[in-house]
């Protein structure tokens, strides 16, 4: 057993990882969205592709998160949401989210982003009003949670690019998938 180390604070976690200029990240994402729009033409298709890319990222990113953050198993979905908002967002994007609007069952909540590094310099032209520009983020959450046995549905309910007053995504826990033991070596 490795010695137990307490989980890091969000700030300490972000300070401990290698970082790059946020504008490089923002502009690269923008360039990618532009490529998708040119190639796929349909805004709906772009939304799907962004979500899929996010999902792919999420499934890989969760490993790094668990390895570096020292968080232990969360007791419930509420704790999971808090960890994502305060540590997950912080470790990768350097920002935090607020968790609000819990339903009575404690299975769905909202992440409200105070700051969103994806959207600097962005404005949706009239032809792209249906674009869910930040769909990659919701895909990441869905992919990452799936890797820790939680099936979720993640949707955007508020988007400043579409005139809302904040960025808010709704995360709904569909079901907990029981982990299967023993793992097969060759999986």
């Amino acid at each position: 057993m490795p010695p137990l180390t307490p989980p890091k604070s969000g700030d300490a976690l972000f300070a401990s990882v290698d970082r790059v200029n946020a504008e490089l990240f923002t502009l690269t994402y923008g360039a990618m969205v532009r490529q998708l729009l040119t190639d796929l033409e349909e805004v709906e298709e772009v939304n799907k592709q962004l979500d899929q890319m996010g999902y792919n990222i999420g499934t890989r990113l969760v490993d790094e998160f668990l390895a570096k953050s020292n968080v232990s198993r969360c007791v419930d979905f509420k704790e999971t949401a808090d960890v994502i908002a305060k540590l997950g967002f912080k470790m990768f994007l350097g920002v935090t989210a607020n968790v609000t609007n819990w339903d009575a069952e404690g299975t769905s909540c909202s992440f409200v982003l105070e700051d969103n590094p994806l959207v600097d310099f962005v404005e949706l032209p009239d032809t792209c009003q249906g674009l869910q520009y930040c769909n990659v983020l919701s895909g990441v959450i869905r992919g990452a949670l799936e890797m820790v046995s939680m099936k979720t549905e993640v949707t955007w309910v508020r988007d400043m690019l579409r005139g809302d007053d904040a960025y808010e995504m709704r995360v709904k826990l569909i079901k907990q998938v029981p982990e299967e033991y023993p793992y097969k070596d060759d999986d």
Partner: peptide, 24 residues
């Protein structure tokens, strides 16, 4: 204009870039 001194993690960029390459 933002201050331009903000950072994100290198892995966030690496993940994104990897998707960009895979998509292309």
């Amino acid at each position: 204009l933002s201050r331009g001194r903000q950072e994100v993690s290198l892995s966030a960029f690496a993940f994104l870039f990897s998707e960009l390459v895979q998509y292309n």
